[in-house]
Design a protein around this nucleic acid. Structure first.
Lengths: 235, 235
DNA sequence: AACGTAATATACTACGAAATATGTCATGTC
DNA sequence: GACATGACATATTTCGTAGTATATTACGTT
């Protein structure tokens, strides 16, 4: 076979053409995480292929990855559906999140430079208007950036990947039921406290602050989801 | 589309026919984890398809999942190779393992019944003869069962999945370089201590014992890999 | 209620197109 | 004359399309 010398093409700023499989994967994942495809929704390969005007194969490969991730369920020879969400699921998910992000914060407390911390502090100032969908979306992105910046500070690629995927799944729950709630005061207070303890360079305190923040988010989302009359939750 | 009423077929004990994609995925993953396909090894879809006497499509779908898991790297329009292993990789991996299995042990300390603990204690007695490949393999399986039994005690499916995948990756490193070493005394001592502290139902002690065991394994594997003259490690 | 038949959707094969690497050869430079 | 450089042809490999086979469900008939 051909030799596999590596050229990431990172140095040249040329535009990277992504495969249809990657396109389908990102689009589908986004539709699930944004709540456009709600838990329990059923669909077929052909249906999605037509929507995205591509053949079934790339759609099929994208679905395979999402099934492996657990976001979608496959029913052999019958079809697919978005994996239903249960209360236990949510608790399990947030237990993982507290673990991964808590560990990341503890490691970041040691690694982050003063400049990094200043940038984090600026990120923690993000606010939003619960009435405006656009504002909600940019707040969600800012929140994501804040958490990922800390996870990057852990200097562990595997941990960063774990944090990213679980954080995105938590955000999905936020979209599913808690959009109407105003979490501004709680979130910004938590984020500020996290930056404060990171400055102390104390791993244990940083972990505790992050775990506490995760638990706050969990409580808020559980309340909002249970209160909402949507079909987001399955028993 | 057809309705997706659920029938897992679990109640009927009928034999489950697995798809070629699943077959290819399991076979490839096993070849990588067992060290048959070593880090850096290059190959093509056609090559693998011929070996397993199937079409390229199921192979391709299996490779997609392994790429997503990080076990294999894809080079668009050129081919694939087994992801090289670096020392930092190993340290990152074991940091994750200590985190996930430590957390699992802490949760298991609360959940496990006396009967569960007795079964665990029996599992901890597994020994092997470093000279016999067959014995090594059954020891590795027993070790896996021991760790997964604890992870199941955490009662969190997501955590169990994380523990499983990372434990398997650690086992791969064991196969890659440490086969010759005799880890019997160290392992059984650690395992016995873990069962002992689990009996105390103290989450913090259980976590500490598990983390310590993970670190012992990490040190042993690092030493063995660096000492071995194999090409398993990339700088 | 049991059975047969049609409809539907996946699972897989086969093939063609596009992209990348490699080898050859002509050309130019020292 | 030796060597480097670029153009072009060719081989290799993935990427995606299209079509076939098979499994499963739904439904009508007896």
């Amino acid at each position: 076979m051909q030799s596999l010398t590596i050229d990431t093409g990172a140095s040249t700023g040329r535009q990277k053409k992504v495969s249809l499989t990657e396109t389908a994967y990102l689009a589908l994942r986004n539709r699930v995480l944004s709540g456009e495809l709600r838990p329990g929704a059923e669909f077929s390969e052909l249906e999605l292929a037509d929507q995205m005007s591509m053949s079934k194969t790339p759609v099929r490969e994208a679905l395979g990855r999402l099934v492996a991730e657990g976001l979608i369920e496959a029913f052999p020879r019958r079809g697919y559906r978005v994996t239903p969400v249960t209360v236990k699921d949510i608790n399990d998910l947030f237990a993982i999140r507290a673990m991964t992000e808590g560990t990341a914060a503890a490691m970041a407390a040691i690694n982050l430079s003063a400049g990094d911390l200043d940038r984090l502090e600026a990120m923690a100032e993000a606010r939003y208007d619960p009435q405006q969908g656009e504002s909600v979306q940019s707040f969600v992105k800012a929140n994501r950036d804040f958490h990922l910046a800390i996870a990057e500070g852990a200097n562990n690629q595997r941990l960063l990947a774990l944090v990213t995927s679980h954080l995105d799944e938590c955000t999905r729950l936020f979209y599913l039921g808690a959009v109407s709630r105003d979490v501004n005061p709680e979130t910004s207070a938590d984020h500020r406290r996290i930056v404060d303890v990171l400055r102390l360079r104390d791993p244990d305190l940083a972990r505790a602050a992050m775990v506490e923040h995760s638990e706050h988010t969990q409580q808020g989302i559980l309340k909002a989801l249970i209160a909402s009359d949507t079909t987001a939750l399955t028993l």
